[in-house]
């Protein structure tokens, strides 16, 4: 077994008296596509928000193994931007693009945490800054080409078709050079054609060794993409395993999958 790059143990999150996450364990290994599924309100997005630092979990640990630095880093108590800097990048369930900026600029923002230029650099435009700018544009352009959005490059983000907006979110997250990419319902609201394209895209990204953790409702997509699946209900993990195991797990069928697998 590979060294897990993300290891979450005993994660608990309380909102007032409500326990949204209850003692949740989850791990993702390098190069894996892992899915987190569960009925509406099971706490999946809450889990994402805890891991990415938007919420402060009540209890538990979140550790990221950094291959380059060869050490474990605790993400607990970090601000969202620090989490991203450490190598976790996410997309949002309800699209949150910088809607007045161009597509290319959206991706360029993703390069922010990997670059350094500041006030003086902006003023002087010295060689180092210009090289960095070129690097930002170059990398962003390459990512857009890979994602298949290069023809929209100079469009304002809000004018993009829905499917393209979702892909742009992925492109933007990739630009931060994540160790692990978190996708929050990437296929939500997509038509079948767009979903197929999305599956291909995710597979292509994963084939380059990118580890991915995704939340998804679309069962077909989850089953065809992921190597391992975690199932949540009422904030608890009720099952984990390969798609095959999950498909046959009675607890899962009872909680959630039942009809959908039959159908």
């Amino acid at each position: 077994m590979h060294q897990p790059i993300l290891q979450v143990a005993g994660l608990t999150m309380d909102f007032g008296g409500i326990r949204a996450l209850n003692n949740l364990d989850l791990d993702v290994s390098e190069g894996e596509i892992v899915a987190l599924i569960g009925p509406n309100g099971a706490g999946k997005t809450t889990f994402f928000n805890c891991v990415t630092g938007i919420y402060k979990p009540t209890k538990g640990s979140i550790d990221l193994f950094h291959k380059k630095k060869n050490r474990q880093i605790s993400l607990l108590g970090m601000k969202p931007n620090q989490v991203t800097e450490q190598g976790l990048a996410r997309t949002f369930q309800n699209i949150r693009l910088f809607s007045q900026m161009t597509v290319l600029e959206n991706v360029m923002i993703g390069r922010h945490c990997r670059t350094k230029a500041f006030i003086l650099g902006a003023l002087l435009r010295d060689k180092k800054t210009m090289q960095e700018e070129d690097e930002i544009i170059q990398t962003s352009h390459e990512i857009l080409t890979k994602i298949g959005l290069q023809r929209y490059e100079n469009e304002i983000a809000k004018n993009l078709p829905y499917g393209a907006q979702r892909r742009l979110e992925i492109a933007r997250a990739l630009a931060t050079e994540p160790v692990l990419l978190l996708l929050d319902e990437p296929a939500a609201g997509m038509n079948p054609q767009e979903t197929i394209e999305l599956v291909n895209l995710i597979q292509e990204i994963a084939s380059e060794g990118q580890s991915i953790l995704l939340i998804e409702h679309d069962m077909k997509l989850v089953m065809s993409l992921s190597e391992r699946i975690f199932v949540m209900d009422y904030g608890k993990k009720i099952a984990q395993g390969t798609p095959e195991e999950i498909r046959n797990n009675p607890a899962v069928i009872k909680a959630y999958l039942g009809e959908e697998v039959d159908a």
């Binding site: 949002f92 990997r114 931060t176």
Partner: peptide, 21 residues
């Protein structure tokens, strides 16, 4: 500049901005 883009992004969506590091 990098800074200027960050400002505009911040104006557009703070949460997404933080998620971008």
């Amino acid at each position: 500049s990098r800074l200027g883009r960050a400002w505009i992004a911040l104006r557009e969506d703070e949460i997404a901005c933080q998620a971008m590091g």
